[in-house]
Computed example of a mutant assay.
Amino acid sequence: MRPVVNRDNAYFFEGTRDQELRLQKCNACGVLRHPPGPACPDCGAFDRGHVVAAGTGTVFSFLVHHAPQVPGKELPLVIALLDLDEGVRMVAEVAGVPPEGPDGLQIGERLAVDWNVIDDELTLPIWRRVEGSRA
């Protein structure tokens, strides 16, 4: 299953191909947002740009997805709501973390972006623990 790329989010997927995590920025008022959209939620301007994020954040919340099956994914799947250092929240697939138990993901834990290269045209962000960040 591939994401739908349109004129509102093309910059994001162009960035992931270059292994950059891009956030939409309103050129009128400077507010950052994700997911992207056609107009600024703060000032209503249609003047959009982007910034390259540091690619680090803190787990605000998370869940372990057991069902239904997701095409191309092995379940269970750890999904986090991540507070990026830039102040934007993003839904994040977390890799390399047991789905449950004492070594499972924790709220407040630090994550860093990594890249899942699907093919020459599609690279997706995937998130991993920052060593030493366990609470």
Rank of each mutant, 00 (worst) to 15 (best):
Val4Trp: 11
Asn6Arg: 02
Arg7Tyr: 14
Arg7Trp: 14
Asp8Gly: 04
Asp8Thr: 15
Asp8Asn: 15
Asn9Asp: 07
Asn9Thr: 12
Asn9Tyr: 11
Ala10Lys: 15
Tyr11Pro: 09
Gly15Asp: 04
Gly15Pro: 04
Thr16Trp: 04
Thr16His: 07
Thr16Gln: 08
Arg17Ser: 03
Lys25Asp: 09
Cys26Leu: 04
Asn27Pro: 00
Ala28Asn: 15
Ala28Pro: 05
Ala28Cys: 08
Ala28Gly: 06
Gly30His: 05
Val31His: 03
Val31Leu: 11
Leu32Lys: 06
His34Ser: 01
His34Ala: 02
Pro36Lys: 06
Gly37Val: 10
Cys40Gln: 05
Pro41Cys: 04
Cys43Pro: 10
Ala45Pro: 08
Ala45Ser: 15
Ala45Gln: 12
Ala45Met: 10
Phe46Ser: 13
Phe46Leu: 13
Asp47Met: 03
Arg48Tyr: 02
Val51Asp: 14
Val51Gly: 08
Val51Met: 11
Val52Gly: 03
Ala53Met: 03
Ala54His: 11
Gly55Gln: 03
Gly55Glu: 06
Thr56Trp: 01
Thr56Asp: 10
Gly57Ser: 07
Gly57Trp: 01
Gly57Leu: 04
Thr58Ala: 08
Val59Gln: 02
Val59Gly: 01
Val59Trp: 01
Phe60Asn: 14
Phe62Asp: 03
Val64Met: 08
Val64Leu: 03
His65Leu: 13
Ala67Gln: 14
Ala67Asn: 10
Pro68Val: 08
Gln69Cys: 00
Gln69Asp: 14
Gln69Met: 14
Val70Lys: 07
Val70Arg: 06
Val70Gly: 07
Gly72Leu: 02
Lys73Pro: 00
Glu74Arg: 15
Leu77Arg: 11
Val78Thr: 12
Ile79Phe: 07
Ile79Pro: 01
Ala80Thr: 01
Ala80Val: 02
Leu81Thr: 15
Leu81Ile: 15
Asp83Tyr: 04
Asp83Val: 08
Asp83Arg: 13
Asp85Leu: 05
Glu86Phe: 03
Gly87Thr: 02
Gly87Cys: 08
Val88Leu: 06
Arg89Ser: 03
Met90Ala: 14
Val91Lys: 08
Ala92Thr: 01
Ala92Leu: 03
Ala95Leu: 11
Ala95Tyr: 08
Gly96Trp: 11
Gly96Leu: 12
Val97Tyr: 02
Val97Pro: 05
Pro98Ser: 10
Glu100Ser: 14
Glu100His: 13
Glu100Cys: 00
Gly101Thr: 05
Pro102Thr: 10
Pro102Ile: 09
Pro102Trp: 11
Asp103Leu: 12
Asp103Arg: 14
Gly104Ile: 02
Leu105Arg: 07
Gln106Met: 12
Asp114Cys: 10
Trp115Glu: 11
Asn116Trp: 15
Asn116Asp: 15
Asn116Tyr: 11
Val117Gln: 10
Val117Glu: 12
Ile118Lys: 14
Ile118Gly: 10
Asp119Arg: 08
Asp119Val: 05
Glu121Thr: 15
Leu122Ser: 06
Leu122His: 10
